[in-house]
Each structure stands twice: as structure tokens, then as C-alpha cells.
């Protein structure tokens, strides 16, 4: 590694169990970065042997062209095993995924969250049997969800009227979502990968209810505001 750069602007390495993280400062000019990467690979080649590398990009905005060059000049040239990427920028994460490369688990979650960042869908009417709403964000129904209607959302779902139909919140398998109904009258709800079946005997039947995840199962709680 060249030593003429300030410490906080150098490419650094951070090890964990069987992985080695290559941290690339996000403000480092690209020209310098390629040179530094090359030096790092040569200087630390013994560290890279038999270890999976995680490339940490911070907030750097990268393109598919950047990735291609990275793979060619760094990964292939130095015979490196690459495990995954960490990126704070959404477009960078998208570029990584679009090339079939792996994001770290934390970033996959973040990426899903961002994808779901679209506006809340507000429906100003009741949903009748057979009608189905799918949305990649939160859904607010100002009306009833009748028996036979379906609301499928990646975010939270709130029903201001009677919930008699099916609601699936956190459709992309994320369970930290909630379903709220002003009058809870449905026999099944789905949240993330969890499905819960209920009967009219439930204490909260017909009440103002919030459904949320709790220790691996679903918690039904009457909302008292």
C-alpha cells in the first residue's frame, strides 16, 4: 500500500472468522483507488489466500462498468475469492444485484426496504370480493376489505373499516410489519412468512386490532387509543 495517503483515506482490511473485509474509502478518487487496490492485493496476497473477501464500498456510487473492471483487474488478476459486497448507496446495490453478485445479508434487507420505499397506497373505497391490491409499500384502505378480497403488501397494511378478507403484510418475507384493522373480522392473516388462522371466538373479534410479530409468532393486540 502506498504510504503517502492519510490513514483514513487508505484502503484498509478488517478480518473476521473466515472473512476479510476490504474497506474502500468512499471519497478516494477512482484513479487512486485502482492503484491502491493493486498495491493492496500485492502487499496482502498472503492474507487473501483461502479467505472470502467482502468488499465494503461505503457510500461510493458505482456502475456496472466499475464492477466489471473490479472483477477483471482485482478479483481475476489476483485470483481472489469474493464473497459479497457492502454498499450504502441504493443504485450501487442495484448495480451489484443486476450483475448477479452478492450483497451482504444486512444490505439485502436494506435493499428490500428501499425498494419498498414507494409511496403509501391509499384506497378510498371498500374492496369487494375478488378484488386484489398488490403494492410494494404500505397500504391504507379507507373502507372495508370484504370477504374474498385480498391485500398483498410488502409494507404495513391498515384497514380503516372491517377486515373480512385476506391481508398479507411483509409479502417479501419480512416480518417486522404490522396489520391494523378498525374491526378485525377475518379468519386468516399473513405477515411475512407467518400465517395465522382465527375464529370468531377470539376475544378481539370485531375490535380495533393490531397484528405484529412477537418472538417468532404473531401477536394480536386490541388497540386502545
Amino acid at each position: 500500500m502506498s504510504s503517502d495517503l492519510p490513514i483514513n483515506e487508505k484502503i484498509s482490511l478488517k478480518g473476521s472468522a473466515n472473512k476479510l473485509k476490504v474497506i474502500i474509502p468512499e471519497n478516494m478518487p477512482e484513479g487512486t483507488m485502482w492503484k491502491e487496490l493493486d498495491h493492496t492485493a500485492l502487499d496482502a496476497s498472503n492474507l487473501f489466500t483461502g479467505v472470502d473477501l467482502v468488499i465494503h464500498l461505503g457510500g461510493r456510487v458505482i456502475s456496472r462498468g466499475f464492477l466489471l473492471r473490479f472483477l477483471k483487474d482485482f478479483v481475476i488478476s489476483h485470483d481472489i475469492r469474493l464473497s459479497s459486497w457492502e454498499a450504502n448507496d441504493e443504485s450501487s446495490r442495484e448495480a451489484i444485484l443486476s450483475m448477479g453478485l452478492n450483497l451482504s445479508r444486512k444490505d439485502i434487507k436494506q435493499s428490500r426496504r428501499s425498494a419498498r420505499r414507494s409511496e403509501t397506497l391509499v384506497i378510498h373505497s371498500s374492496l369487494r370480493s375478488g378484488q386484489r391490491i398488490e403494492h410494494d409499500g404500505d397500504v391504507l384502505i379507507i373502507g372495508h376489505v370484504n370477504d374474498g378480497a385480498e391485500v398483498i403488501a410488502e409494507g404495513n397494511v391498515s384497514v380503516m373499516g372491517k377486515l373480512k378478507g385476506l391481508v398479507h403484510a411483509g409479502y417479501n418475507s419480512e416480518e417486522d410489519r404490522a396489520i391494523i384493522a378498525a374491526s378485525f373480522e377475518t379468519k386468516q392473516v399473513r405477515l411475512g412468512t407467518k400465517v395465522s388462522t382465527l375464529s370468531e371466538e377470539a376475544d378481539f373479534w370485531g375490535r380495533y386490532v393490531i397484528v405484529s410479530p412477537e418472538k417468532g409468532s404473531l401477536l394480536f393486540k386490541e388497540l386502545k387509543i
Partner: peptide
């Protein structure tokens, strides 16, 4: 009957 009402609801949605 609940079944007929659910079907009627479906039909009304289509008619609308």
C-alpha cells in the same frame, strides 16, 4: 347466506 353474499359482492364489483 354468507356464500351468496360473498358471490354477490364479487358480482357487484364487476358490475361497478
Amino acid at each position: 347466506e354468507v356464500s351468496a353474499v360473498r358471490d354477490a359482492d364479487r358480482i357487484i364489483g364487476m358490475l361497478e
